[in-house]
């Protein structure tokens, strides 16, 4: 629960450098902040605001509009079960009910150990494999109740740690070049790719 780390401040500066107007970097910076702490702490949001010269209220006002940005703590694994039409037609509601019973929390809740937050979500664009869900936005399709329990087990024991990073980590590939088209002196963006999902 803190302000951004020096490394994350550098990442945010690089993001700001990509846009004609700095405020465009706000949402990408909030993803960095959420990667750091798993959710958006007031301190991190204030820090982001300072870097963009906007008030904490403006940061919060934007963040609170978006479903993926959490201004209160969430579990290490955000389990997002879809019940929109294609999933509804293929057992998505029953899957959500099973998930609630299996994790012992209602949709919207977090398990006592802080491992899982369960949410009911709108279409996640994986409808060929309905019913489907995502864990920290890594997708799982044709999920039977048995498959759900196995998945939870694998997540708990860390067997899926490579495929499913902790909540908040969106993109593990870093852009490794700055803006170069109009400015030959532009410096490359900091850290190169830190492992990709290629082959996954």
């Amino acid at each position: 629960m803190a302000r951004l780390t020096p490394d994350n401040v550098r990442r945010c500066r690089d993001l700001i450098g990509l846009y004609p107007q700095s405020r465009s970097a706000l949402i990408p910076m909030l993803h960095v902040a959420q990667e750091q702490d798993g959710w958006l702490t007031p301190e991190a949001m204030e820090h982001v605001g300072e870097m963009l010269d906007i008030t904490p209220a403006e940061v919060y006002g934007t963040a609170s509009f978006y479903d993926m940005l959490f201004t209160t703590p969430v579990g290490r694994h955000l389990v997002s079960v879809c019940t929109n039409l294609a999933c509804l037609l293929n057992g998505g509601v029953e899957l959500l009910e099973h998930a609630e019973a299996s994790l012992g929390v209602a949709a919207g809740g977090t398990t006592d150990d802080g491992e899982f937050t369960l949410e009911e979500v709108e279409c996640i664009a994986f409808c060929g494999a309905a019913p489907c869900l995502a864990v920290n936005w890594r997708f799982f399709g044709s999920v039977t109740t048995d498959a759900f329990d196995h998945l939870v087990d694998d997540l708990r024991t860390g067997r899926l740690a490579d495929e499913v990073p902790p909540h908040g980590t969106l993109c593990r590939v870093r852009r490794n070049v700055g803006l170069t088209a109009g400015d030959a002196t532009a410096t490359p963006v900091a850290a190169p790719a830190a492992g990709t999902t290629e082959g996954a």
């Binding site: 936005w137 993109c171 852009r175």
Partner: peptide
């Protein structure tokens, strides 16, 4: 779309490659 984590990773990696290849940038 923010939820497309793998898609974002893939297209970010692709963009890095495209810059290095000279297909994007100056």
């Amino acid at each position: 779309r923010g939820e497309f984590a793998l898609g974002i990773e893939r297209i970010t990696a692709a963009l890095n490659e495209a810059y290095a290849y000279g297909a994007v940038g100056p």
